[in-house]
Design a protein around this nucleic acid. Structure first.
Length: 683
RNA sequence: GGGCCGGUAGCUCAGUUGGUUAGAGCAGGGGACUCAUAAUCCCUUGGUCGCGGGUUCGAGUCCUGCCCGGCCUACCA
């Protein structure tokens, strides 16, 4: 097998929040690929870092009254801790806020300047005077210039209109609540269009990208002139100041991918390796793993930057979809927005690694986490089939160890060894679900072998002790072969297997030669079945966490519905009442039996309400302008049934129908949800 | 509205360049075993391959129209 040199990156997590199970799809996917490559004997380095710059970090640090450096240092510790807990093993984990990164940014910047790709333009942007900062779109809200809806986000309105924040009527800064003013500032742009030819070629050839991505780029960007890329932000901005443009900072998306290189640089310095051997070497492969949300930065800008600066271009950008839980977006209120930290309190990380592997393919489809399936897969595949092989045979050979020669197993081990290439190909293509299927098939063949050989009967007969040892030697070797194949996914299980059988699993070739004549340790339980109560507890805890952040969930919803306080102002809240006060009013569900216009009245309709049985009320309701009598007949309403009768000009009214609104045409009667019946009291 | 991907057993999915009677795992049903974490093994029920046309000796597979779902995107390919 030719020896490959492979540099692998996973996207840099933003230092503005904790790692959650959505992030983990990517890091687990990448970690598996890296472990696989290393196991195959390739020289492979796994690089990552925290992405630390930008307005969001600056604002948050300000709100928390501390420095950005303090915030990102704290976040990075948490990130690295979470990754380690899931056995995600980086060769180097850096930070974009590092001297290495600043230096590389400068070098690449100079190359881009030298290639005459940079131009300056004045940009008018809203400026928060109180906070002293320009406002990104998402930090401005105001009235939509088109439909006049108030309190809309800075770039688009729920009416579908898109616009620039400066076009908003009555814009307000979400940072300070003050009205921002329009100010011009110099921005630096990269003229990506100059690289159009190169990008056409690079994106469409050599399998650098998945076919869907190729189509996407062709259809959305490359079919047209490429827009200039605004890569600077005026001060104040948490980032690196542009050396030849004082007062301006590189936009976070300029320095973030360069963070891959900076982190590589750190690794090289630590291990006495040459940076150019990794980033300026045609025989080095560079593989980026990213989510589909950042496709365009990694497939257009980033190759463009690398090309201009004369570095290696990515060999492949592997793009994956998002995580859904029970086919829905992760939701804080439903408890499916699960932080890595929360998961770890309840469930074994091995489960998640296996589950994701069993679901991941080479496409960018979203991956759905279904906890029923999750438990079924772990229990059935891993515990019932794979681990079972060891747990049912190891103790019979704890005293004797494995047989000195590998016995006849009917070709099972050899078959498994041959399947290795197919498994490897699946891993290589990131087709992990196929790899898992192939591996579990091996376990499906191994268990019947044990079944037929009946070691539990053999042990009863002292004369069959050799046969017993042979059977267990086969079972444990088949088990170990499976674990070798699974080891990129389940490193902990591989380690436990090493402890059981003594020989470390450090190479794919371990799957090709059976182990013989070695001691077998006392079997220790390797993996428990999934406790479904723990899943429930985890979801409950995630809900509680979301509730503790309370405002954020409610605020999110409130922002979406954007209800104003006009009605509340028109009728301020009444003074507090007791439950005794409340139950004095007997509110009932009623059916409208008759409804007729009262011609002489300006506002009234005359209704007969049925409370069930013979119980009726005649009610005059001031809803003429809002409802037609014929539309009311038969529908359920809510009325106050014990209101003292009142004589009116046209008869006696024996109750009131409950409705909201200021009156006139704006009257909105209360409706009873499906299932309610006349006569029921409203509590 | 446009683009991309998908629709195969109750669920998750395989089905190679068109080629016998469409497969697997899980779940369901029946039985066996007792070494193993109520694990395992054997047998078994179950499908108009989204729908309609077409090409072909032959279509789950190719072409076409439609329906449904997901993602992306939005008066723009």
């Amino acid at each position: 097998m030719p020896h490959r040199q492979i540099l692998v990156t996973a996207a840099l997590p933003y230092a503005n929040g904790p790692i959650h199970i959505g992030h983990l799809v990517e890091y687990i996917q990448t970690d598996i690929w890296v472990r696989f490559q290393k196991l195959r004997g390739h020289r492979c380095v796994f690089i990552c870092a925290d992405d630390t710059h930008g307005t969001a970090i600056m604002i948050r640090a300000r709100q928390e009254g501390r420095s950005e450096e303090e915030l990102i240092a704290e976040t990075q510790i948490a990130h690295e801790r979470d990754f380690a807990s899931f056995a995600i093993e980086f060769d180097n984990y850096g930070s974009t806020n590092s001297p290495e990164n600043e230096k590389l940014c400068g070098e690449i910047w100079q190359s881009i300047r030298a290639a005459e790709l940079v131009k300056e333009k004045d940009i008018e942007q809203l400026f928060d005077v109180q906070e002293g900062t320009f406002l990104a779109d998402r930090f401005v809200r105001g009235t939509c210039p088109k439909c006049k809806r108030p309190d809309q986000p800075g770039d688009n309105c729920e009416c579908g209109q898109t616009y620039a924040p400066a076009e908003l009527i009555d814009p307000v800064s979400t940072l300070s609540g003050t009205t921002p003013e329009l100010r011009a500032a110099k921005h630096l742009f990269i003229e990506l269009e100059q690289l159009h030819g190169f990008l056409d070629e690079w994106t469409q050839t050599d399998d650098h990208l998945q076919p869907e991505v190729v189509n996407y780029l062709k259809g959305h960007f490359l079919c047209d002139e490429l827009r200039d890329w605004d890569i600077s932000r005026p001060a104040p901005y948490f980032g690196f100041e542009i050396s030849d443009s004082p007062g301006n900072y590189w936009y976070v998306w300029f320095d973030a991918p360069i963070g891959y290189m900076a982190s590589t640089q750190q690794w090289c310095d630590k291990h006495g390796k040459s940076f150019n051997d990794w980033w300026r070497n045609d025989s080095t492969e560079i593989h980026h793993f990213i989510g589909k949300d950042i496709t365009y930065f990694h497939t257009l800008f980033w190759p463009g930057m690398l090309k201009s600066a004369g570095f290696n271009l990515p060999t492949k950008v592997h793009i994956h979809g998002f995580l859904t839980v029970d086919a829905e977006k992760m939701s804080k209120s439903k408890g499916t927005f699960i932080k890595a930290e929360t998961y770890l309190k309840h469930l074994n990380p091995t489960y998640l690694r296996y589950y994701y592997a069993s679901k991941l393919g080479a496409r960018l489809d979203d991956l759905d986490l279904n906890f029923e399936e999750f438990a079924a897969k772990i229990d059935s595949d891993l515990v019932g089939k794979v681990v079972n092989l060891a747990s049912r045979s190891a103790k019979f050979v704890a005293d004797t160890g494995l047989s000195a020669e590998y016995p006849d197993d009917g070709g099972l081990f050899e078959q498994g060894a041959k399947a290795g290439e197919e498994v490897a190909a699946a891993y290589e293509q990131c087709d992990y679900n196929r790899a898992m299927r192939l591996i579990v098939e091996l376990a499906d063949r191994a268990n019947p072998y044990v079944e037929n050989a009946q070691p539990w009967n053999l042990r009863k007969d002292p004369e069959k002790s050799q046969e017993l040892q042979d059977v267990c030697t086969v079972a444990l070797n088949l088990f170990r072969q499976i674990i070798v194949y699974l080891s990129p996914v389940l490193p902990r299980l591989a380690k436990q297997t090493t402890e059981l059988l003594g020989k470390p699993i450090e190479s794919w070739d371990e799957s090709q030669m059976p182990l013989v004549g070695t001691p077998v340790a006392k079997f220790k339980r390797m993996l428990d079945r999934v406790n479904t109560k723990s899943i429930q507890a985890m979801i409950e805890e995630s809900k509680d966490e979301a509730a503790a952040d309370g405002p954020s969930v409610a605020d999110e919803a409130a922002a979406k519905y954007n209800d104003d306080d006009e009605a509340l102002k028109a009728e301020p809240l009444a003074e507090q009442c007791t439950i005794d006060d409340f139950i004095k009013a007997d509110l009932r569900v009623a059916r409208v039996l008759t409804a007729e216009d009262v011609p002489e009245a300006r506002k009234l309709l005359k209704l007969t309400l049925g409370l069930g049985g013979d119980e009726r009320r005649t009610v005059f309701a001031g809803i003429k302008a809002a409802y037609k009598p014929e539309d009311l007949i038969g529908r359920l309403v809510v009325c106050c049934a014990n209101l003292a009768p009142r004589k009116m000009k046209f008869g006696t009214s024996e109750g009131m129908i409950l409705a909201s609104g200021p009156g006139g045409e704006d009257v909105f009667m209360l409706r009873v949800d499906e299932g309610g019946v006349p006569g029921q009291r409203v509590h």
